[in-house]
Amino acid sequence: MTADPNRELLEIARRIAVAAGELAAARRAAGVEVAASKSSPEDVVTFADREVEQFIRRSLAEARPNDGFFGEESIDSASAGTSGLTWVVDPIDGTVNYLYGIPAYNISIAVVEGEPDPQTWRPLAGCVVNPVLGEVFTATDARGAHLGTKPLHVNPPVDLSQALVATGFGYNSDVRVKQGLVLAGLIGQVRDIRRIGAAALDLCYLAAGRYDAYYERGLNPWDHAAGALIAAEAGARVSGFGQAAAGRDFTLAAEPLLAALLEPIIRTLFDEAGL
């Protein structure tokens, strides 16, 4: 039997993500210290973010020395590699949750074919680990998504009024105000809104049927590389507006019929809010 190369890539991602989660959890138990702010004073990075990414990068280099690396905490030193594959990594997604001890943070590792650009890449495998809950979400291209060994499937179609919708907000306060206007326009049309502050988990929770839909603007490649593959392999439509791929401009993930209902509504609300 011929080995599945994507399965082999997934096993590497899973092994390293679980170990990285154990390291992040140990550092959280020992106490978290802010290392710096990034895009705004609210957008923080901890010393643990940097240490966990260094661990992941070193581990991937040992396992796959010819692959590229693109991580949140080392953008300036991203490497292209020679294999045509790139690992896209968020060492601790949900850093503010991590800082406050909220059990909704994760390690996200994906491997894509091509450049680390959501508009052009082809995701091959991804793993998202919540070390607090011990949940390991995985997917490979065209092979489905799983939580542990359990296959994942998005919820069946629901009326818009019954849809539980998740979202996230940017770090810039002016942007958050506009996102709040979008939320105010949407919340009366759906069952309710959830916001946990970790995009990869949002996408995985959608895949697991814990939400009916998820949308957000401002996601970076590492925020959704693994989670978007997991959601798509669970049956979600994951896209931007129109024919665009999911990315920084917009990401919507939902069962396809529900996504078709939500997209024009959210687009109109974005326009009205000036986003």
Results as ranks from 00 to 15, higher is better:
residue 258 L to N: 05
residue 242 G to I: 09
residue 142 A to D: 13
residue 114 G to E: 11
residue 256 P to W: 06
residue 11 E to T: 08
residue 217 R to K: 05
residue 140 T to H: 04
residue 51 E to R: 10
residue 258 L to G: 05
residue 225 A to D: 05
residue 227 G to P: 09
residue 60 L to G: 02
residue 6 N to L: 04
residue 12 I to T: 13
residue 155 N to P: 04
residue 49 D to G: 08
residue 7 R to C: 03
residue 79 S to F: 00
residue 154 V to D: 01
residue 201 L to M: 10
residue 69 F to K: 02
residue 15 R to K: 13
residue 185 G to N: 09
residue 233 E to K: 08
residue 153 H to P: 01
residue 120 T to F: 03
residue 94 G to L: 09
residue 69 F to W: 13
residue 75 I to K: 15
residue 134 G to E: 07
residue 95 T to A: 08
residue 136 V to I: 14
residue 99 L to P: 01
residue 171 Y to S: 12
residue 35 A to M: 14
residue 243 Q to E: 15
residue 169 F to K: 11
residue 237 R to D: 14
residue 96 V to L: 14
residue 271 D to W: 00
residue 241 F to T: 06
residue 118 P to I: 03
residue 60 L to E: 03
residue 116 P to M: 08
residue 146 H to P: 00
residue 118 P to E: 02
residue 179 Q to Y: 06
residue 111 V to P: 01
residue 197 G to H: 12
residue 116 P to G: 07
residue 51 E to S: 10
residue 256 P to A: 12
residue 249 D to W: 02
residue 177 V to C: 00
residue 50 R to N: 10
residue 204 C to A: 10
residue 191 R to C: 10
residue 194 R to N: 05
residue 68 G to D: 04
residue 135 E to K: 10
residue 126 G to P: 00
residue 162 Q to H: 12
residue 147 L to H: 01
residue 239 S to Y: 03
residue 48 A to D: 13
residue 80 A to P: 14
residue 40 S to N: 06
residue 275 L to G: 06
residue 234 A to E: 06
residue 114 G to L: 06
residue 81 G to Q: 07
residue 186 L to C: 09
residue 36 A to G: 04
residue 261 L to T: 14
residue 97 N to A: 07
residue 237 R to P: 05
residue 211 Y to M: 11
residue 7 R to N: 08
residue 168 G to V: 00
residue 247 G to E: 02
residue 252 L to D: 04
residue 248 R to W: 09
residue 32 V to G: 11
residue 201 L to Y: 02
residue 222 W to I: 01
residue 236 A to I: 03
residue 68 G to Y: 07
residue 223 D to S: 15
residue 164 L to P: 09
